[in-house]
Simulated scan of single mutants.
Amino acid sequence: MIYPIVVYGDPVLKKEAQDIEEGSIDVKKLAEDMFETMASASGIGLAAPQIGMSIRMFVVDGSPLDDEEGEEDMSDFRKVFINPEILWEDGEEWVFTEGCLSIPGIREDVSRPERLRINYLDENFKEHEEEFDGMKARIIQHEYDHIEGVLFTDYLTPFKKRILKGKLANITKGKCDADYKIKLPKKK
């Protein structure tokens, strides 16, 4: 099932998500739906809040990046992260232009540490503790931010936020170009 993507302005995107109790939901089916939703929107990561669910789960698939010359091997980077916890981040901060399915049409430079260690459960509720670096770490950091209620625009300078204010307001109203189904914030 393909879910609509919740866009900027919806409170679920700014809320810290809740842990998932084993057996409380069908995480395998949800993961399958999230991968399908992400692929249909040409994404490389998708967090549950982006489909309106305030739970600590995200999926990543870096394989679309594998075609890019000089990039790290992303062909095997397809994972489900449930109740993740970043244990540490370190290394040089590096800047990369990020985008987000919940903020269509806006891409901005974001600085993040190059490495991390994360503890998480997979779709079988098997525990893992792994280290990632480079683009894999960045994708995880971006999606992890979603379950913490943080968007990449939160890292921008006040000046940059002022410049984008009108575009962000338009996204909230549905005045944006997205070639996938979106869900607008409920009007107050």
Rank of each mutant, 00 (worst) to 15 (best):
1 M>I: 14
1 M>F: 12
1 M>H: 06
1 M>P: 03
2 I>W: 00
2 I>C: 07
3 Y>L: 06
3 Y>S: 05
8 Y>A: 06
8 Y>E: 04
9 G>C: 09
11 P>T: 11
12 V>S: 04
13 L>A: 06
14 K>T: 14
15 K>G: 07
15 K>Y: 00
17 A>Y: 01
19 D>E: 15
20 I>R: 11
21 E>R: 08
26 D>E: 14
26 D>R: 06
27 V>H: 05
29 K>A: 15
30 L>Q: 00
31 A>W: 01
33 D>T: 00
34 M>D: 02
34 M>R: 09
37 T>I: 08
39 A>V: 02
40 S>C: 05
40 S>Q: 10
40 S>L: 07
42 S>A: 14
42 S>T: 13
42 S>L: 13
43 G>D: 02
45 G>H: 03
47 A>H: 08
48 A>T: 10
49 P>H: 10
49 P>Y: 11
52 G>F: 04
58 F>I: 00
58 F>D: 03
58 F>K: 00
59 V>T: 09
59 V>Q: 03
60 V>Q: 00
61 D>P: 06
67 D>A: 12
68 E>M: 12
71 E>Q: 10
73 D>C: 08
74 M>R: 06
74 M>Q: 09
74 M>W: 11
74 M>V: 01
75 S>N: 02
75 S>T: 13
77 F>R: 11
78 R>E: 11
79 K>P: 00
80 V>E: 07
80 V>S: 05
82 I>D: 14
83 N>H: 03
83 N>Q: 10
84 P>H: 07
84 P>M: 04
87 L>E: 15
87 L>R: 14
89 E>L: 10
90 D>R: 13
92 E>M: 04
92 E>I: 03
92 E>G: 05
93 E>K: 13
94 W>A: 11
95 V>M: 05
95 V>F: 04
96 F>V: 05
97 T>C: 02
100 C>P: 10
101 L>I: 00
101 L>Y: 01
101 L>E: 00
102 S>K: 04
103 I>D: 02
104 P>C: 03
106 I>Y: 05
106 I>M: 07
109 D>Y: 09
111 S>R: 15
111 S>F: 07
111 S>T: 13
112 R>M: 09
115 R>N: 13
116 L>V: 07
116 L>A: 07
116 L>I: 15
118 I>R: 04
119 N>I: 12
121 L>E: 10
124 N>L: 02
126 K>F: 01
127 E>P: 03
127 E>A: 14
128 H>C: 07
129 E>F: 10
132 F>T: 03
132 F>C: 02
137 A>N: 11
138 R>L: 09
139 I>S: 08
140 I>V: 13
143 E>S: 10
143 E>V: 03
143 E>K: 12
144 Y>F: 15
145 D>P: 03
145 D>F: 01
147 I>Y: 04
147 I>S: 04
150 V>K: 13
151 L>H: 09
151 L>C: 05
152 F>L: 07
153 T>A: 09
154 D>K: 06
154 D>Y: 06
155 Y>D: 12
155 Y>C: 04
156 L>A: 08
156 L>N: 08
157 T>N: 04
159 F>W: 12
164 L>G: 06
165 K>T: 05
166 G>K: 15
166 G>M: 03
167 K>H: 05
169 A>D: 13
170 N>V: 00
171 I>F: 07
173 K>R: 13
175 K>C: 01
176 C>L: 02
176 C>K: 04
179 D>L: 14
180 Y>C: 12
181 K>L: 03
184 L>H: 08
184 L>I: 04
186 K>W: 02
186 K>C: 00
188 K>S: 14
